[in-house]
């Protein structure tokens, strides 16, 4: 009895050692493989976030820890910037996604030279943001080519960058010029993954293109659409270069998106505390909006 027990015990121990060896190896390789990502995450995300929080909430001084937030929320230029950013977001996201979707559907149909069109639509992505903004700066001048064209065909000229409302629309146009093609590629891939048999069967049942779009394409695109919606929203909250180059936040603060407002505070005025506080507000807004979007478009079926 005792010997048997002893042997089983020994076997169990040996097995345990082997298993723990295997487990340790798994751990080591996991750590080695994850280390670069974790280090980068720490360096590029976690540490800056903590630094921003420490900057924004000064502890141990004479001032209240919340004084930086009190300051920015009492500053009309910051409140205007929050308003402009939300307004921009409400306008630009639906436009970009609708256009990207329309183009994706169009370019997955059998139209001639489809590759060529896709390339043309994607081309703006290859142009650096700063370069494209400079080209637009000339295009949108009051006496620039766009207005020249408008007056040549008898249309009224537009105060593109010189009137607050139109300036925001100009930023929407410039961002969409770059963005639509990019987001379109995700939707094209999504459409290609929808089985063509569904379209064939529905065609036999007499469904027209419009019906197919609503009943097959759109439901089939739910996951890529959710991704595009969230990623596009986030990227549009972080728009900076076009504003910096085209309008510097003007006229009259009409295009002063939060990213630009923050950068002005930090790097022109040298007020990094208020800039950090404003950054945290921007992050909070993005998190709230993205959470709402996730709730509104649940991918439950998957």
């Amino acid at each position: 009895m005792t010997s048997v027990t002893a042997r089983t015990e020994r076997e169990v121990t040996r097995g345990r050692t082997r298993r723990s060896l295997v487990r340790r190896e798994t751990w080591i390789s996991a750590v080695v493989l994850l280390l670069p990502a974790v280090v980068l995450l720490l360096l590029l995300r976690i540490i800056p976030t903590v630094t921003a929080m420490a900057e924004a909430v000064p502890l141990g001084g004479e001032r209240s820890p919340w004084s930086n937030f009190a300051y920015i929320f009492s500053d009309p230029s910051f409140l205007n910037s929050v308003w402009v950013t939300l307004l921009f977001s409400v306008i630009v996201n639906p436009i970009q996604i609708a256009l990207a979707l329309a183009l994706a559907v169009l370019l997955t149909k059998h139209i001639p030279a489809v590759g060529l069109w896709r390339t043309f639509i994607l081309l703006p992505i290859a142009v650096p943001q700063a370069v494209s903004a400079i080209i637009w700066l000339v295009m949108l001048r009051p006496d620039g080519p766009l207005n020249g064209l408008a007056s040549a065909i008898g249309l009224p000229t537009v105060p593109w960058l010189t009137e607050p409302g139109w300036a925001l629309i100009s930023i929407v146009i410039v961002c969409s010029w770059v963005g639509v093609g990019y987001w379109m590629t995700f939707l094209v891939t999504g459409i290609k993954e929808i089985p063509s048999s569904l379209y064939e069967a529905s065609a036999l049942d007499g469904a027209n293109g419009w019906r197919q779009f609503w009943s097959i394409t759109l439901p089939g695109l739910r996951r890529p659409l959710l991704f595009v919606l969230v990623a596009d929203t986030v990227s549009n909250f972080l728009v900076f270069a076009p504003v910096r180059i085209l309008t510097q936040g003007g006229p009259q603060g009409g295009t002063d998106l939060l990213m630009h407002n923050i950068s002005e505070r930090a790097y022109t005025l040298g007020d990094t505390q208020a800039a950090s506080a404003a950054t945290l507000v921007l992050v909070a807004i993005v998190i709230v909006v993205v959470t709402i979007q996730f709730r509104m478009l649940p991918g439950k079926e998957d």
């Binding site: 105060p159 009137e163 510097q248 006229p251 009259q252 002005e264 022109t268 005025l269």
Partner: peptide, 27 residues
């Protein structure tokens, strides 16, 4: 001066684009 110059450059630019000078300078 840094604050002053960047604020005034924006103000002049707004006035140039047609905003009311009294309102721009007031703000």
């Amino acid at each position: 001066y840094v604050q002053f110059e960047s604020e005034m450059n924006n103000a002049f630019s707004d006035i140039r684009n047609g905003a009311d000078p009294r309102r721009v300078l007031g703000s």
